[in-house]
Design a protein around this nucleic acid. Structure first.
Lengths: 208, 208
DNA sequence: TGCAAAACTGTACCCTCGGTCTAGTAATAT
DNA sequence: ATATTACTAGACCGAGGGTACAGTTTTGCA
């Protein structure tokens, strides 16, 4: 067997996660029952609990899965952006444009949706989730910060800024943008907001 | 009896809402049981269902309550801001600073928390909530827009901007800022982000 | 002061859902 | 072949949301 081959158990687990993911995204976590998942996955309750200790472990698995996907997407975008320009400001601006386009094309299943649907499940759980969430945010901040620290060396900012807050501002824009996009049922809102952030960056370091 | 006197029924209903609010904010909606609420309110299950058709109606009531409170706080802040300056830009900047301060001083129970805890409860419910949420957002947008349209008349913007998106950007900042504040367990994050938005506005219309 | 409406209590019951336990069986890897 | 993995079968439990309905108290008001 090759290294990429999955065992029967792993395949079943993946199938459960796949089914659970779409159900949770469509109806929310607490409104997705185990019975429903196992019916679609064609296995028994015992089978489900063979793979997951309890429903909370399912939530955790769902969440770490979505974080991995986010990291890949985000990392890919800004890696390409760096390749396209040696100048950190230009690269960041290019990355932001690509991010806006990517987000604008997602009709459902925005990264971050899983966070929102799952976060408020229960108290004990929240502590675990907050830690995972924080790790995710810290990775984002680090990524954006790597651009910003380079940028401020070359381009004197037009106003007093805290680069940390400026890096977080992009996370804020994405998270808040997702909420407004859902509320208005329009993915364009998120894309527009990322472009607003881009305008701020341009104005701050380039003056136009 | 004066017009402000509440009937016995209204008082009981308010008591339920009060108890439910703190419980939901502390532990989440699905983790707050009706049994628990009625125990603290010292009434029976039948008594509860006399006031609320089901748990979803409780959620709705909780939500519209928090919207009302938000409107009062937000409206109050920007009304005072207008009083303090005839210039729309200065007034807006003052309002933003007051908003940042107000938000930074809230340790828990940010406006918007109730939205998050309650929104993903169930599918049917989500549609109702989205409408309420949208109305809330539209009111915010209108409020912020009333400043921005005045501002652009006096101050030519340093970059191409869409005032609608700019108005929404503040909602985005607040909603996203709340998420990051919760994740990092630090209300200062939200305050900082509002100040970042303020910097953007200053830079855009005042150039520094 | 009396009477209807409002605001409940009490009890019994049903369903769904998360979760546990035990015992047994089929598939698979080595 | 055999131990481990990956399940099935089925009985059961408690919490929680919700219903039905009959009865009782409390309140506002003419």
């Amino acid at each position: 067997m090759s290294a990429t081959t999955k065992s029967k158990g792993e395949m079943t687990r993946d199938r459960i996660l796949e089914i659970a993911e779409s159900a949770v995204l469509a109806k929310g976590f607490s409104n997705t029952s185990i019975d429903e998942i196992i019916a679609e996955a064609e296995l028994t309750k015992s089978g489900f609990f063979y793979h997951f200790r309890d429903k909370t472990e399912l939530a955790r698995a769902l969440l770490s899965r979505s974080f991995e996907q986010d990291d890949i997407i985000l990392g890919g975008i800004f890696e390409r952006a760096r390749e396209l320009s040696d100048d950190p400001l230009h690269a960041f601006l290019v990355g932001l444009r690509m991010l806006a386009e990517t987000m604008g094309n997602m009709d459902k299943a925005h990264p971050g949706c899983m966070v929102a649907t799952v976060t408020y499940h229960d108290k004990q759980f929240n502590d675990d989730i907050r830690t995972m969430n924080r790790n995710g945010m810290v990775r984002w901040r680090a990524l954006f910060l790597s651009f910003l620290v380079e940028i401020v060396q070359t381009y004197p900012p037009r106003a007093d800024v805290d680069v940390d807050a400026l890096a977080d501002m992009l996370s804020v824009t994405v998270e808040g943008g997702i909420i407004l996009s859902k509320v208005f049922d329009d993915p364009k809102v998120l894309a527009d907001q990322i472009m607003q952030y881009r305008t701020f960056i341009r104005l701050l370091f380039q003056g136009n």
